[in-house]
Design a protein around this nucleic acid. Structure first.
Length: 645
DNA sequence: GTTGGGAGAATTTTT
DNA sequence: TTCTCCCAAC
């Protein structure tokens, strides 16, 4: 029996041990939200709810893993059967089982952002749209995604910017339709499709819906404030019978509106579930009171929020610092000096993080850290599994397993010298619109189509495919990748990309990851959903973490904490970002983002405010200090200027 | 048809 | 200053 009284405070206990029925837990930052969820799971299991009847939806895979790890420590291996993961992950699981019911095959492929964009580009070309003003693929991709994640049509989300271009909206819609058709033809879904098709699956098929409704006795949703329309609908639908939903979130931390997150979902939860019990967690165990004072001050007065105040439990320490600096270089120097000072005080590099609004804000600092010899790890914008060289290897795996994977075919064979789109078109048609790598006759046929020079390069691949199917390498993807790398890819990579050794490391990482999956096909069905934050988490779990300062965006830092936090570029136009301020509730969202940044810190918080921004072409302009700094009551912080720290 | 060079534009956040 | 696109040479 778990002694909840000892482990949880009264509010946490109320949430963890509540009976059936809807539950809304408003958990402010650092108030033990994960802890509470872990013991909620433990309590349900203790009450006799079977683990496979619990659905735990989280915002990142990392959060799901962490929660299950901790729950496992409390209640043992049975937690392994709990359904958990991101909405995308869970929908993927539904669809892998039932996609045939909505006109897809169950082994559909998942398109990452890059794949989606190039397909859209293909659609524009197919439709012979040539106007110079026509929106580029990137713009269209985010437009389509925006529509999907808000559950709207494309026409509904065309904004003024696009209308100003005097582009025919009908053309954009035609591209959208062509994109849908193209995806269907390739048996492919993009990230948004996973959600919308997953939702469609249970909306249109009452039997499937009912079976999941019966299966999931309890649904727990973490970070509920960042759910979008389709996600909230999915939860409502799955919970429609039993109504055992526990939504945990913090409206102050809704930072994904641009991705369709609608914090009305959390605000209106009590309306949709009138009988729900509302519990507020406000006792903060993470940060020292001085940091909480800044957090409370910067978020106070944001409109339309559940009123919550962070209450400190830790003893007093020192006020957060505000550094007034001349420019990015001085900022980098100041940050480095403080990093060294904190290290002398006994912190490890790994206890420190530098957060910023956008990736490009970190460039000067990266260079300076390198010069200073301070180890750092950057959680970059491009996912580990989205990088070109990793996708090259994945293409090989896809050709191994999926005879009609045109995208994989194109990517893999396009690596041969002198082979481009037109050639590939021809080969694909002549092979009968499929290429079965298991079939020696087809491999022969393909080789026969090649020019002698390409055939020479193709040979090692041909051999590899034979080995894959004959030796049963499907269960040993690591070996498969290793052979591919040694016999073919190493050479290709060396002539194609710079920093080949760094890239080789990523491929080795891929080998490690694939060995954790049951088989090559199983790995492929999930890989697109892995993110670089998950990747960091895995590394740390394997004990591979070196002592290094972390760098990353505030978005990536969500749900994490560090003893020492630096927030750089706290200047108007940077943070808050000038782009966002044009949007209706841009200010409120940026403020929430700043709040998230501040509340990551346990002991020490440093806010850096440079005055001048230099552009690449040598120009410079002045920035005012961020409104989030200038609005702070002065007595809450320690200010220092430039070199006088 | 493919490749590589050169000119031009452009810098938010992510499953 | 880095990525992307277009055009000219192989």
């Amino acid at each position: 029996m778990i002694n909840y009284e000892k482990i949880l405070n009264p509010e946490q206990r109320q949430a963890a041990t509540a009976g059936d029925g809807p539950l809304l837990v408003l958990a402010a930052a650092g108030t033990g939200k994960t802890h509470t969820l872990v013991y909620r799971v433990a309590h349900l299991l203790e009450r006799g709810v079977p683990p496979e009847a619990i659905l735990l939806l989280t915002f990142t895979n990392r959060a799901a893993l962490e929660m299950l790890e901790r729950a496992r420590a409390v209640c043992g291996d049975q937690v392994g059967s709990v359904w958990s993961g991101t909405f995308h992950h869970v929908c993927n699981r539904f669809l892998r089982r039932y996609a045939d019911r909505i006109g897809f095959r169950n082994d559909f492929i998942i398109l990452d952002r890059d794949d989606a964009r190039s397909l859209i580009d293909g659609c524009i070309k197919d439709l012979h749209i040539q106007s110079k003003d026509f929106p580029k693929k990137d713009v269209l991709a985010s437009l389509f995604s925006n529509a999907a994640s808000r559950g709207l049509g494309i026409g509904d989300v065309i904004d003024e910017n696009l209308e100003a271009l005097r582009v025919d909206v009908a053309d954009i819609i035609r591209v959208g339709e062509a994109y849908v058709a193209k995806k269907a033809g390739l048996q492919a879904m993009d990230f948004d499709d996973l959600l919308t098709q997953g939702l469609r699956l249970i909306t249109e098929h009452a039997d499937i819906c009912r079976s999941y409704q019966e299966r999931f006795e309890h649904i727990l949703v973490d970070e509920y404030q960042d759910t979008n329309g389709p996600q909230a609908k999915l939860v409502d639908l799955l919970a429609a019978q039993r109504r055992n939903v526990m939504a945990v979130g913090d409206d102050f931390q809704c930072i994904y509106s641009w991705r369709g997150a609608d914090f009305r979902n959390i605000m209106e939860f009590p309306k949709r579930y009138p009988s729900c019990v509302i519990i507020k967690l406000e006792r903060n165990y993470r940060s020292v009171p001085e940091i909480l004072a800044v957090a409370n001050a910067c978020i106070a007065g944001n409109p339309d929020q559940f009123q919550k105040v962070l209450r400190a439990t830790r003893p007093e320490r020192a006020k957060p610092r505000v550094l007034r600096l001349r420019d990015g270089n001085e900022q980098a120097d100041a940050v480095i000096r403080l990093i060294r000072r904190y290290r002398d005080d006994g912190y490890r590099f790994a206890d420190m993080v530098v957060l910023y609004r956008a990736h490009f804000h970190s460039i000067e600092l990266q260079v300076a850290l390198g010069r200073a010899g301070i180890p750092c790890r950057i959680t970059s914008g491009v996912g580990v599994f989205e990088q070109a060289h990793v996708k090259d290897v994945l293409a090989m795996l896809r050709v191994c397993t999926r005879p009609d994977d045109r995208l994989g075919f194109d990517r893999l064979l396009g690596m041969l010298r002198g082979v481009g789109i037109k050639t590939l078109d021809g080969w694909w048609a002549k092979l009968g619109e499929r290429f079965d790598s298991a079939d020696p006759a087809q491999r022969q046929a393909l080789a026969a189509l090649m020019r002698p020079s390409a055939r020479g390069e193709w040979e090692p691949l041909d051999k590899l495919f034979g080995e894959y199917h004959d030796e049963g390498l499907a269960a040993n993807g690591g070996e498969l990748i290793e052979r591919f790398f040694e016999r073919f890819y190493k050479t290709y990579m060396a002539r194609t990309y710079e920093f080949a050794d760094r890239r080789a490391e990523d491929i080795r990482e891929l080998e490690v990851q694939i060995m954790r999956a049951a088989s090559v096909p199983a790995f492929l069905s999930e890989v697109a959903l892995l993110t670089n934050v998950d990747h960091e988490y895995n590394r740390r779990n394997r004990g591979e973490e070196e002592d290094a300062v972390q760098l990353g965006t505030v978005h990536q830092a969500k749900g994490l904490e560090w003893p020492v936090v630096f927030v750089i570029w706290a200047a108007e136009g940077m943070f808050p970002s000038s782009r966002t301020l044009d949007e209706p509730s841009g200010d409120a969202e940026e403020r929430r983002l700043f709040y998230v940044a501040v509340t990551r810190a346990r002991d020490e918080l440093v806010l850096a405010v440079p005055e001048i921004r230099r552009t690449r072409d040598g120009g410079m302009f002045f920035c005012k200090p961020s409104r989030f700094i200038s609005e702070l009551p002065r007595e809450l912080v320690r200010e220092s200027f430039g070199n006088r720290m």
